[in-house]
């Protein structure tokens, strides 16, 4: 085990090309999917939290249910939709990075919406009452609400990014874990472990844990600054 860790560190420091490609595909998939989920989820979360309309509760329940959707179920649905016989088969997206991004967006967006909705619904009545009292316009109230959400938006993004980088079920189903093409860190760890090649698996595990540690440090540091 000790020699495997030593070899893994040597591999990271040597700038291995295959490892570099896996990191690049992972970064492309996770950053893109988490950003798309954020841009779609934050406005929807604010509206869902601040706006009391008929059917709101039903939507909140759906979002909270989708938050717990197993990645393999998401992967399976995407696979069926984008396979040759599926309604979107003509786009030929299966086993590409793009379908991995789409699958992750489907998986992460409900998480972003539900997180922001929970925060906004707690402060919205007070913010709206104060804004109406000051004669502010609805768009000004919405901007103030968004300003109040800076920390939750930030922490939700990191949560979404962490979920996407650690996710394996959906991306392996729709991406196929093809070496040099759609292999991300999590699928690569599975692949190399199955092959008995622990060194690369441990190297990727170290990188994954380091990213997780970094994310947590950033959250902790920003928490104090932003949540004022």
């Amino acid at each position: 085990m000790q020699s495997a860790i030593q070899k893994a560190i040597e591999l990271i420091l040597s700038g291995d090309r295959e490892l570099g490609n896996i990191l690049l595909v992972t970064a492309k998939t996770c950053v893109t999917s988490s950003l798309i989920a954020l841009f779609m989820g934050v406005p929807l979360g604010i509206l869902l939290g601040a706006w009391n309309f008929r059917g709101r509760r039903f939507l909140v329940i759906i979002m909270r249910t989708l938050m717990g959707m197993p990645p393999v179920v998401c992967g399976l649905v995407m696979y069926i939709l984008f396979s040759g016989v599926g309604p979107f088969g003509r786009y030929k997206l299966l086993f590409t990075v793009n379908i991995m991004i789409i699958a992750q967006v489907v998986l992460i967006t409900p998480l972003v919406i539900a997180n922001i909705e929970t925060y906004v619904s707690a402060i919205a009545p007070l913010v709206q009452e104060t804004s109406i009292g000051l004669g502010l316009r609805p768009w000004q109230t919405l901007m103030l609400l968004a300003n109040e959400c800076i920390y939750p938006i930030f922490s939700t993004y990191l949560l979404a990014f962490a979920r996407s980088i650690a996710e394996v079920g959906a991306v392996s189903m729709v991406g196929g874990a093809i070496a040099w093409k759609t292999n991300v860190m999590t699928t690569a760890i599975m692949l190399y472990t199955n092959r008995g090649s622990f060194t690369l698996g441990i190297a990727l595990g170290i990188i994954l844990m380091s990213i997780s540690l970094l994310v947590n440090i950033v959250v902790t540091v920003m928490q104090g600054r932003l949540n004022r």
């Binding site: 104060t130 004669g135 109040e148």
Partner: peptide, 25 residues
């Protein structure tokens, strides 16, 4: 002239300085 201005029992301190809070109005 605004029609009605209202100060609720629990006024919300927005995430900005005191002066900016006042200048919101």
């Amino acid at each position: 002239i605004k029609e009605i201005l209202y100060m609720p029992q629990k006024s919300f301190p927005f995430r900005m300085s005191l002066e900016k809070n006042i200048l919101l109005a």
